[in-house]
Amino acid sequence: MSAMLLHKDKWSEFTGRLSGKNLWAPSLQGGIKKFAPVGEGDAVQLDAENTAVPPKALLFPQTETLFRFSEGQEDLEFPGLDEPVILLGVRPCDARAMAIVEKLFRWDYEDPYYLKRRELTTLIGLACNEPGLNCFCPSVGGGPASTEGLDILMVDLGESYLLEGLTGKGKALLEECKDLLEEAGADALQQKEQLVQEAASKIRRSVDPEGIPEALPGLWEDPLWQRVSAACLGCGICTYLCPTCYCFDIQDELEGAVGRRCRMWDSCMFEEYTKHTSGHNPRPTRRERTRNRINHKYSYFVDKFGVIACVGCGRCSNLCPVNIDLIDILRQVKAAP
C-alpha cells in the first residue's frame, strides 16, 4: 500500500479511531498553539499556521524526570516509557528537525529517553500548502512536503487527504484504517505534485547557505556579531521554540525524603548557561551567545553531523520580540568579508 486517499467526510472517523491510540494534534490552548492530546470525540482541525511550540516538546519534554529516588532506598525508580504516541499534523520541517536532533541523541552516547520516545512515536505529517511568512525550508534542504523523519505524509487535496505510508510504522497504521481509505489514482498524485510546487513557489524568504559553514569560523571576531546581538534581550524564545535546539540542564529536586533527577530545556542565550562556579563566564555577553547560536546551527553541527541544524521553520524570526531575524543574520554573514 503506498498512496491512499482519505475523503474529508471520513476525517472525524479517522481521527476518532486514532484518538484511542494516544493521539496528539495541534490545538489552540488559551492563545498559544501547541500539540495537545485529542480525546475521544474531539474535533481535529488542521489549519495553515504551524504551532508556536514545536512538537519536539513531545520527544524532548521541557521537564523530563529521568529517575526518582528516596532516602534509605538504594534502588532508583525509572519512568516506564512504553506508551505509543501518534502525532497528527506535524509539519515537514518539524519532522526533519526530529531526524536531525536524533543524530545528536544517537551520537557518542545513545540517549535512552529520547530514542525510546522516538521509537514509540508515529509521525503523521501534513504538507504545507500555505507556507508562513518566515518559512525558508527549501533554503536549508527541506521543503513543504519533505518526508524526512515522517512515518506518513498527508497532503490536503481539498476534498480529501492524500496519505502516503513512508515507514513500516506508517504503513501498518494505514493498513489498520484501510476501510476508511481508498487507493489514490494518478490524478491525485499529480494534484499533489502541483500543490507542492505551488507551495514552494509561495515561500517568500530564502537564503543560500552555500559557504556559510565554511565562512563562520573566519568571522569569529567580525563586528557583525555586535551589530546583530545589540538588541538581544537574552531571553529563551528563539531557542526554546526552535525545533532543532536540544540543550538541557540536569537538576535534582527534593521534597522531604523523596526527590527526582530531571532534565529541562536550557538555552545558550541565557547568561548562566556557560557561567562557571568561579563566576567566570566564557560567553560573557549577548554577542558571544548570539554568535554561538548561529555557529552551532550553521557550523559546529555541520562539522559533526554533516547537516545544518536549522530546518527553516521561521519561528525564531517570527517570535523574537526585538526583530532579531535569522535570515537577516545569515545574509550579513554571507556579506561579511
Binding site: T65, R68, P79, E253, E255, V258, G259, R260, C262
Partner: peptide, 13 residues
C-alpha cells in the same frame, strides 16, 4: 478548605 491546587507536584513523573 484544603488548598491542594498550588502544591508542588515535582515528585510525579
Amino acid at each position: 478548605g484544603p488548598f491542594d491546587q498550588f502544591r508542588r507536584r515535582q515528585i510525579g513523573w
